[in-house]
């Protein structure tokens, strides 16, 4: 029983952080109709921003996050406005040029970071990193609990932004019908640039929340891009509720898989979900939740 409880706690807490990372990808997919393959790589950049602030100024990632998020927002905004968007008009034999471009941008960032910080593993370890609450035989990692709390606050904040403000509604409208949004006076380029920035800022938040409990090296991005993609497919494109539930389900599945199946096949669990959703629930969880 303690084992089951512990497994669920681990999966749930991790799932919350996954959700924040994935929600950025789902937003970008919704509005721009492209999968941002560079998502994890840009998250990595944010983690290094936090890491640098930790080593130089001693700022905890929970605080450094509020520097990393605007940085990544800016990077995302400029990338979409002056790079990704323009490729739309370039004639090329390659399919999905914009998707490939996000990959290329991501890889460029990996190498830049590698030049600055080298390939070494880094982590932000403070005595606080190992603090735990204990319920009977089960332990709840305090930094993970806080990360989860902050993650949920961001998800809630984003949900309010998307449903209660004109800007948020414009994002959703652009995702649902681009031409109609233009008729309403929505500047689609501005919205997509801001959305890309917002998505990157959320990825930055996810990265910052991971930093106290995980570690860091320049190639850390790829598995997170894959996880975010699986969660996006699982949750359904462009849906915060979908990404949140997708993140929690995915975290739980990984955790249960590691305990009751085999810890060596965590990734397989993800891919099985990926396939099953594509085959049997192509709209993702969002379609199930809506109905």
């Amino acid at each position: 029983m303690a084992l089951f409880g512990q497994t669920i706690i681990c999966g749930f807490l991790m799932g919350g952080v996954y959700a924040v990372i994935a929600i950025g990808m789902t937003l970008i997919l919704g509005v721009m109709k492209i999968i941002n393959i560079g998502h994890g790589h840009l998250m990595m950049v944010a983690m290094y921003v936090c890491f640098a602030l930790f080593t130089s100024l001693g700022l905890h990632p929970y605080i450094a996050m509020f520097v990393a998020m605007p940085c990544l927002f800016g990077i995302g905004y400029l990338l979409q406005r002056y790079s990704i968007h323009r490729v739309r008009f370039v004639d090329t034999i390659l399919p999905q040029t914009q998707v490939l471009l996000t990959l290329a941008i991501g890889l460029v960032f990996v190498e830049i970071i590698r030049v600055i910080f080298k390939s070494d593993f880094r982590s932000v370890y403070t005595p606080f990193s190992s603090k735990c609450l204990y319920i009977g035989d089960m332990s709840i990692s305090l930094p993970q609990l806080i990360s989860f709390g902050i993650a949920m606050a961001f998800v809630a904040g984003l949900h309010i932004l998307l449903t209660r403000t004109d800007f948020g509604r414009s994002i959703r409208a652009t995702a649902q019908d681009l031409d109609a949004a233009k008729y309403m006076g929505v500047d689609a380029l501005r919205v997509s640039s801001l959305t890309f920035g917002l998505g990157m800022a959320l990825a930055a938040a996810g990265g910052a929340l991971l930093l106290p409990i995980f570690y860091l090296f320049p190639d850390i991005g790829v598995p997170f891009t894959i996880k975010a993609l699986i969660i996006t497919i699982l949750g359904g494109a462009g849906s915060t509720v979908g990404a949140l539930s997708g993140g929690l389900v995915f975290g739980m599945a990984e955790s249960l898989g590691a305990v009751y199946w085999a810890p060596g096949y965590k990734d397989v669990v993800g891919f099985v979900i990926f396939l099953l959703v594509l085959l049997f629930m192509p709209g993702g969880l969002k379609t199930v939740i809506k109905r």
Partner: peptide, 20 residues
């Protein structure tokens, strides 16, 4: 007696099983 994925972000589930 299990192999694990060294890229895993959270190894606690495995360690919980070890503890059990």
């Amino acid at each position: 007696d299990e192999p694990y994925d060294s890229d895993a972000i959270d190894l606690k589930p495995m360690l919980a099983a070890v503890k059990a």
